[in-house]
């Protein structure tokens, strides 16, 4: 998967919609992306301010490690900073950023697997297996939620899982997801349909979510 996008989509946005259409992009954001692409550091820093939270959460949803999410988020923005000049269409900035983040998460897991191969031979315990500092104090409810969600996600194929997360956890629109994954919208919808169909049968997870509703 490459980290450069040159698409010419006309609309993108918050992903609040349930289908493929997205609200128009904020003109100030368009200007910031253009300035950042032209080498304006302050404009890029402003983009960090806009997207750091959501990229961090996106990574956290996939690693469930605060420390790793911080490290990966840092890497994502450095990579984006180095490549932002390749952005031709400001609308593509967000999907492009998510694509970098998704690649970074995939790399993280591949490196982790590589490390685990070596620790297997050396007999050392893997570093990442130490309990996280915040895990001890994490509320039972959070653990329960990630547990239920993790259990549900194991029932999905890799593609269904990623499309589902991008849509309902990361709140991207169908078109944005298609750009992130480099697939067409109908492919994204097919995977999403299968994932949601499994989700609606997930009584325990849905029951847990209902308990949480105000």
């Amino acid at each position: 998967m490459q980290d450069t996008l040159h698409g010419d989509s006309q609309a993108t946005g918050s992903g609040q919609e349930e289908g493929g259409e997205s609200p128009a992009m904020d003109p100030r954001l368009i200007a910031e992306v253009r300035q950042a692409a032209a080498g304006d550091r302050a404009a890029f820093e402003s983009l960090i301010g806009r997207y750091q939270g959501e990229i961090f959460r996106m990574v956290y949803y996939r690693t469930l490690s605060r420390m790793d999410a911080e490290d990966i988020t840092q890497d994502v923005f450095i990579k984006a900073f180095r490549g932002v000049e390749t952005i031709r269409d400001p609308v593509m900035f967000k999907p492009w950023l998510y694509r970098i983040a998704l690649n970074a998460v995939n790399d993280f897991y591949r490196k982790k697997r590589l490390r685990s191969i070596f620790t297997l031979f050396s007999g050392d315990r893997e570093e990442g297996q130490a309990p996280e500092e915040d895990r001890a104090s994490e509320r039972l409810e959070r653990k329960e939620f990630w547990g239920w969600l993790g259990k549900f996600l194991t029932r999905l194929s890799a593609a269904e899982k990623e499309v589902f997360r991008l849509k309902y956890l990361d709140d991207l629109g169908i078109r944005e997801i298609a750009e992130v994954l480099g697939k067409n919208e109908s492919t994204v919808k097919t995977h999403l349909y299968r994932a949601v169909d499994k989700f609606r049968c997930e009584k325990e997870l849905c029951g847990f979510l209902k308990e949480e509703k105000p």
Binding site: E45, I48, Q52, Y60, A69, D134, F145, L209, E212
Partner: peptide, 29 residues
């Protein structure tokens, strides 16, 4: 079904920490 999916998104957000580290950009290479 839609409400369950939205509740899932909200819950995930509630159960995730906020980033605490400032992003440090390199000087132009």
């Amino acid at each position: 079904i839609l409400e369950d999916l939205r509740a899932l998104g909200r819950k995930a957000r509630d159960c995730a920490p906020e980033p605490a580290r400032k992003i440090v950009l390199p000087s132009r290479e």
